[in-house]
């Protein structure tokens, strides 16, 4: 009998070329990293159950989901606001049945949809990250207007995206997370790379932790 291989493929398998791109002199102004192996679950409170949903989330994650556009780090997941009374639960994909656990806790309270493969996650950082982002995002990503923990549901190239800001990196620079629809990932990666070529771009792929 044949042994079938079920290798997960990233939508960026072709377009992501690891290494330095664009201007080569000096330090890369932008670092762009695909984050693979993610678990992402859309949690939408049922009608009249927003408070229960928050309570259930608190029990499971140790934090209440954000009620305004923010991302909060919980025990086993980061909760990212994605609309009124809904959020995305994001974590590194693990062997155990994460979706099953969530389904249990939110049964009858919130509706869930597994989006772990429906999105592609990238991280953008570096001293020129904001300048690159400004080329394809109409959001005000100024340090005080979009501080660490801020999040937004917005558009890039007329396609929906989620953006949220982590704590600054070890180099003190801002770190942005960009979640795009899987089918658009190839196209948007090209847009992001093009925006950063003049600053020098370092591209890579990493696993979610």
């Amino acid at each position: 009998m044949v042994d079938y291989l079920w290798n997960a493929q990233s939508p960026l398998q072709k377009e992501l070329v690891a290494g330095r791109h664009g201007v080569t002199a000096g330090q890369a102004g932008v670092t762009l990293t695909e984050i693979r192996g993610i678990m992402l679950v859309q949690v939408m409170a049922r009608r009249g159950k927003a408070v229960e949903t928050a309570k259930a989330a608190k029990k499971l994650f140790g934090v209440e989901p954000p009620s305004t556009p923010k991302a909060v780090i919980g025990k086993i997941a980061t909760l990212i606001w994605s609309g009124p009374d809904q959020f995305l639960a994001f974590a590194a994909r693990s062997a155990d049945s994460q979706f099953g656990k969530l389904a249990e806790v939110f049964a009858g309270i919130a509706s869930l949809s597994d989006q772990s493969d429906g999105r592609c996650l990238s991280q953008i950082s570096g001293p020129r990250a904001r300048e690159a982002l400004a080329k394809f995002s109409s959001l005000d990503l100024d340090d005080t207007m979009f501080p660490p923990g801020a999040t937004a549901t917005s558009s890039v190239d007329h396609t929906p995206v989620n953006i949220w800001r982590d704590a600054n990196g070890a180099d003190g620079e801002a770190v942005f997370n960009l979640l795009v629809f899987t089918s658009f990932a190839d196209s948007l990666w090209k847009t992001i790379v093009a925006s950063a070529l003049e600053y020098g771009l370092e591209a890579s792929s990493a696993h979610a932790e």
Binding site: K14, K135, S183
Partner: peptide
């Protein structure tokens, strides 16, 4: 700007495209 020729608009690829 960037949106010309093959980059005129975003494109979507299916999982089996490549």
């Amino acid at each position: 700007g960037h949106h010309r020729d093959e980059n005129f608009h975003a494109w979507r690829l299916t999982p089996s495209h490549h």
